[in-house]
Nucleic acid binder design. Structure first.
Lengths: 145, 145
DNA sequence: CAGCGTATGTCAGGATACTGACATGACGCA
DNA sequence: TGCGTCATGTCAGTATCCTGACATACGCTG
């Protein structure tokens, strides 16, 4: 028999949505002094770990569309935080790289975000955090067949 | 010492965002046949469990603003899924209730969403799900001081 | 070599949620 | 009674993200 969701407080989806929203709000507040949105920070973070990515690759990594990433990159480029190749070395993909200013603000932002994550998981020990992350990854995987 | 986020695959925030996004996408796809958005479903679900709530109370329960909930309710009311008192019994709050059609579609939607949640947590046993939900709630709580 | 499929960058339009603002009604307090 | 505060409903404007579309560039295949 199929049943309904039942009590919201016991719903996995509700809890997941609530936790994700709390994290997003906390990150927005923490990043506001740097004038960075969560999407902008995510873009910088991915770019810091994997320099030379194209806009489309960045979009997939950050879970937004190419179009959103395009607008996002324009803003970050105008602020001098990253630079894009003027011409495509191959195909149409334009490699993107952080500037010195970009790496600098990323260092600050990354520390801020790490602090938020530590606050979120302050009640967990190292092992519990690992299991929690694995569970989250398993959830995402199970939904993306 | 403050450190950065490190490898994204080991970041709690990244995993949480990814799982929440996968769930949202899966729910949107599952609810599309009923022509319900996730926010609309959430509204109906809360209203089914707590009839008579005002728009402002619903907004807080669903984590949207009063204004968003207002527009959302107009759409659901026009579809005949819920009805709002024409005059306020007290104060300005207008109690909202599901119609028969609303309860009917909620039953379907709730089963659909429950199926998505089961798919998401298919690899967990009952105990693991409970712990997982508790962990999520602890994360949300730790961020809302 | 021509054609097809795929990936990318970019432009335009629309949906959704938010912030700001205003009016109204209830309540507490001097 | 009158005033200040708060909660609610509602309107307007804005931001953000999405879908749709088009042109371009590469790779594969007949």
């Amino acid at each position: 028999m199929t049943q309904g969701v039942g009590d919201l407080d016991r719903s996995v989806g509700y809890a997941l949505k609530q936790a994700a929203m709390a994290l997003r709000v906390a990150m927005e507040a923490a990043l506001r002094p740097l004038a960075l949105t969560v999407s902008q920070y995510s873009c910088l973070e991915v770019l810091g770990q994997r320099p030379g990515l194209s806009a489309a690759e960045l979009a997939r990594a950050v879970f937004v569309t190419r179009q959103s990433m395009h607008a996002l990159l324009l803003g970050l480029e105008e602020r001098g935080l990253l630079e894009r190749a003027a011409t495509a070395p191959q195909g149409r993909a334009l490699p993107t790289q952080l500037t010195d200013a970009g790496r600098e603000i990323l260092t600050e932002a990354s520390a801020i975000v790490a602090a938020v994550e530590r606050r979120m998981t302050a009640a967990f020990d190292r092992e519990e955090v690992g299991r929690f992350v694995a569970d989250l990854a398993a959830c995402a995987e199970a939904l993306n067949y």
